[in-house]
Design a protein around this nucleic acid. Structure first.
Length: 409
DNA sequence: ATGTATGATTTGGT
DNA sequence: ACCAAATCATACAT
């Protein structure tokens, strides 16, 4: 600090660079004569050259000696003169600094990703987790992306702390250089303009470092994105139990395999998957079942038996089982799905039991199913299979046509 | 290595 | 918003 104030006072005298003596009033005070005046200048120059090789203390001492040298004012004025002549050539250079398009692109991206700019949603991992947990009806995205958000928040934090570090370093360095220049301005002429320029140069350097930071942050975000968001596409099979639950529901609601929102939520909960995954599953299942009913017969029968057994158990336990709308097989112990399809379920189970599903009859069973349903809701209930497949009830589609007849024969 | 199964996404329709 | 259908991309079985 001491140094700094001293240098600042030194700088104030800098306004009139052409005035030789303004540099340092002290210098006049202590004049240690050094013998021959002629050799002095060479001497001084030599000392200047050598100054970098010396230790700090030595340099400091030397500097002081130089400042106090009686020839110093003269040298200073000479330097000022030279500078006056050359400064024009230096001046014309540059100045304009158009905003780098690349850095603007990076900035925009960081802003878009929520890395820079105002805190959005989850500024910290904790906040993100809280946000994910808070959503009363946990939307899929908040669950699926909470991890992503947490990681993003981490990147954000690192980015900001790094940025802050850079900014601090930049201002520290700028200060240092300015002080240095002010200090030097006592022995050589330095205009404020030049200091300004130097500062600008430093800022440019640091901003290029910042750009690197931004770039690597962008890269990190991209990688994160591809790892998490695009990983949506990465498929993990559901566990066996989940598939079982879904299949049970599907085959026990074969007439109308369109679970309501509540049913989906229930299924999702049971299976440990998201509602949209349930929707996906049913979408896929419907289309694939419809496309090749024959292929799914075995499975259908399996679940039919299962539900039948469950239903039997339920009815056995509750001796009043005959009552209206049904033993729900979707979940052996609990009647979670109370929808239109349930009536069908009851029938289907009976159906399964009655026909006993010998392989040769499998297809028959299928047909029976459809018909049976039709009995309940003749053309409405099973229409989901008929839309593009009018005859599907009696003869499953496509190449299976022949296959089908084979099996049924 | 190859074929099939399967969860996810896209597209187009209502 | 939901669905069917087609498609993609990976998991899994062979």
């Amino acid at each position: 600090m001491d140094d700094q104030t001293r240098m600042l006072t030194g700088l104030t005298g800098l306004g009139g660079l052409s005035q030789p003596d303004v540099g340092d009033p002290d210098s006049v005070r202590k004049q240690q004569s050094l013998g021959q005046p002629q050799q002095d200048i060479g001497d001084i120059l030599q000392q200047i050259m050598a100054i970098t090789d010396e230790s700090l203390d030595e340099a400091q001492a030397r500097k002081h000696a130089l400042n106090c040298h009686r020839m110093k004012p003269a040298l200073f004025s000479v330097l000022c003169e030279i500078k006056e002549k050359t400064v024009l050539s230096i001046r014309g250079v540059q100045e304009e600094d158009p905003p780098d398009p690349q850095i603007m692109r990076l900035d925009n991206m960081l802003l878009a990703e929520g890395v820079s700019g105002p805190e959005k949603g989850g500024g910290s991992a904790a906040a993100a987790a809280a946000a994910a947990a808070a959503g009363g009806s946990p939307t899929d995205s908040s669950i699926e992306h909470s991890d992503y958000r947490a990681k993003l928040a981490q990147i954000r934090q690192i980015y900001h702390s790094e940025l802050e570090k850079y900014e601090q370093a930049c201002s520290e360095f700028t200060n240092h250089v300015m002080n240095l220049l002010r200090e030097q301005s006592r022995t050589r002429p330095i205009s404020p303009k030049e200091i300004e320029r130097m500062v600008a140069i430093i800022h440019r350097k640091f901003s290029s470092i910042q750009m690197q930071l931004k770039q690597s942050t962008c890269e990190a975000v991209m990688i994160l994105r591809s790892r998490f968001l695009d990983a949506r596409r990465k498929r993990r099979n559901f566990n066996k139990q989940a598939t079982e639950v879904l299949n049970e529901y599907f085959y026990s609601h074969l007439s109308n395999p369109y679970p309501s929102e509540e049913a989906k939520e229930e299924l999702a909960k049971k299976c440990g998957i998201t509602v949209s995954q349930v929707s996906n599953w049913f979408g896929n299942k419907r289309i694939r079942y419809k496309k090749n009913i024959g292929k799914f017969q075995e499975e259908a029968n399996l679940y039919a038996v299962k539900t039948a057994v469950d239903a039997a158990n339920v009815s056995a336990q509750a001796s009043q089982a005959n009552s209206p709308a049904t033993p729900n097989s979707g979940s052996p112990g609990s009647n979670s799905f109370s929808h239109a399809g349930d009536t069908y379920l009851g029938q289907r189970s009976l159906n399964g039991e009655g026909l006993n599903f010998t392989p040769s009859l499998q297809l028959q069973v299928c047909k029976e199913d459809s018909c049976r349903v039709d009995g309940v809701d003749p053309h409405g209930a099973n229409s989901w299979q008929d839309t593009t497949n009018p005859p599907s009830v009696t003869s499953p589609p496509g190449p299976p046509g022949s296959v089908h007849s084979d099996t049924s024969n």
